[in-house]
């Protein structure tokens, strides 16, 4: 084998090795770090993991937000108009967190309450996860939504 070929072989092997390692690590890391989004109906049906963190998306139910006085702990209810899940969050809520608007929280179930570690609301107040949107559209057809509930919030 001449020098040029040998060098090429080494370079190729190094590149292939690096790519293989990177791909393996990526896939491994992906499997470890993926969180799934569930709607309250799915959680109620027991589809969500019992001991792993997951994301819960839905509408913040009207009149459900209660601050534990003097602390950073907030209790509220996330609903898709079929099922509702009580949520407890300790921390500062984002600007776009309001009743009647959609939110996505990350956390886990503890004794029937979803204990959230993060609460996200979207830049765009009209944004809604498609899954929740479907559930709500269905609920609308069945007249489950309180009057004016969806008119709150910005444009």
């Amino acid at each position: 084998m001449n020098a040029v070929r040998k060098r090429r072989l080494i370079v190729t092997l190094v590149i292939l090795g690096a790519v293989a390692i990177a791909a393996g690590l990526s896939v491994f890391a992906l499997q470890q770090n993926v969180t799934y989004l569930y709607s309250p109906t799915e959680v109620d049906a027991g589809k969500a993991p019992a001991h792993h963190p997951f994301r819960l998306g839905g509408i913040v139910k009207e009149g459900s937000v209660h601050q534990v006085p003097g602390t950073l702990t907030t209790d509220f209810v996330i609903t898709d108009r079929f099922q509702s899940i009580p949520v407890r969050y300790t921390g500062i809520l984002p600007d776009l967190f309001r009743t009647g608007l959609s939110t996505i929280t990350t956390g886990r179930m503890e004794h029937g309450t979803f204990v959230a570690t993060t609460v996200l609301a979207k830049h765009d107040a009209t944004y809604m996860p498609p899954q929740v949107k479907q559930a709500i559209a269905k609920a609308k057809e069945e007249n489950r939504i309180p009057p004016h509930a969806l008119e709150g919030g910005g444009p």
């Binding site: 890391a29 992906l30 770090n33 969180t35 799934y36």
Partner: peptide
């Protein structure tokens, strides 16, 4: 598979 999100724990260390 469901609605999933990949966050900083994946991107950061890699």
């Amino acid at each position: 598979i469901g609605r999933i999100s990949v966050g900083p724990p994946y991107f950061g260390p890699l």
